[in-house]
Amino acid sequence: MVGGGACPQQESAQIIYPVPAPLAPPSRYRLFKGSERQLVERSVVTLQASGFYWGPLPTKEAHAMLEREQIGTFLVRDSSQGNHLFSVSIKMESGPVSVRVLFLKGFFWLRELFSDCPVKLLELAVEKCQHTPLRCQNGIQLTLSRPLRRTRILSLQQICRRCIITHHGREGLAELPIQPALRRFIEDFPFKI
């Protein structure tokens, strides 16, 4: 065959079956697009770095874990309701309660507080609760004081990072004479909690 464009005999005899499109992984969350998707992905990474994000922990187990903790201790977990991403379970005087974190128009909401980062939102909630509790629609007052981490003992680097952020704030990092590697470590998780 000269200059032919036909396939060799062996390949042309091959039967090609239509391949169905792969199934999307099961998800109980709505689909996010563009910047909203990036925000949610970044938020999950930040929550995982926090040490107090417990993933798909059932409500009953979260409440059992918090039962023996101090009042105000909280953890973040996946919401058991499909139209919400996260829930915060908190040890209250009356026992553990869970509150959904709303995600609306690019912001995470916990009562009247909001932020584009769930860890920053919880940091704001802890600061606010030092003065006044958060009020729920049903009259329950929420007090958040400290997270329940998967690992209770922080590394020396984590303790130093928290101390630097507490004393200098996120805004003050640029002015500190610290090595680039340390600066990156602090900027990876620039939160007080």
Rank of each mutant, 00 (worst) to 15 (best):
L47V: 00
L47G: 04
L47D: 08
Q48C: 11
Q48N: 15
A49L: 11
S50Y: 12
G51S: 08
G51C: 09
G51E: 06
G51R: 03
F52G: 03
F52W: 14
Y53S: 05
Y53G: 04
Y53M: 05
Y53R: 02
Y53F: 14
W54L: 01
W54V: 02
W54Y: 13
G55K: 12
G55R: 12
G55T: 09
P56E: 12
P56L: 03
P56F: 04
P56Y: 03
L57F: 02
L57D: 00
P58F: 06
P58K: 10
P58Q: 09
P58V: 13
T59C: 15
T59L: 14
K60G: 08
K60D: 13
E61Q: 13
E61G: 01
E61S: 07
E61D: 13
E61Y: 07
E61C: 03
H63R: 11
A64G: 11
A64N: 11
A64P: 02
M65D: 03
M65A: 09
M65E: 10
L66Y: 03
L66S: 01
L66A: 01
L66C: 02
L66G: 01
L66M: 04
L66K: 00
E67S: 13
E67H: 12
E67D: 14
E67M: 11
E67T: 02
R68F: 11
R68N: 10
R68T: 05
E69L: 07
E69W: 06
E69Q: 15
E69P: 01
Q70E: 14
I71C: 05
I71F: 06
I71K: 10
I71G: 00
G72P: 07
G72N: 10
T73Q: 02
T73E: 04
T73V: 15
T73I: 14
T73W: 09
F74M: 11
F74C: 07
F74H: 07
F74I: 11
F74L: 06
L75F: 01
L75I: 14
L75N: 03
V76S: 03
V76D: 04
V76W: 05
R77H: 05
R77S: 07
R77P: 09
R77C: 02
R77Y: 06
D78V: 00
D78K: 01
S79K: 11
S79V: 04
S80K: 14
S80I: 00
S80C: 14
Q81W: 13
Q81I: 06
G82R: 14
G82V: 04
N83M: 13
N83H: 15
N83D: 15
N83P: 10
H84T: 12
H84D: 12
H84N: 13
L85R: 07
L85H: 13
F86S: 03
F86V: 02
F86D: 04
F86Y: 14
F86E: 05
S87M: 09
S87H: 04
S87Q: 04
S87E: 08
V88C: 09
V88G: 09
V88L: 08
V88W: 09
V88H: 08
S89N: 07
S89W: 06
S89R: 03
S89V: 09
I90Q: 00
I90T: 05
I90H: 02
I90N: 01
I90G: 00
I90R: 00
I90D: 00
K91Q: 15
K91W: 10
K91F: 10
K91D: 06
K91N: 12
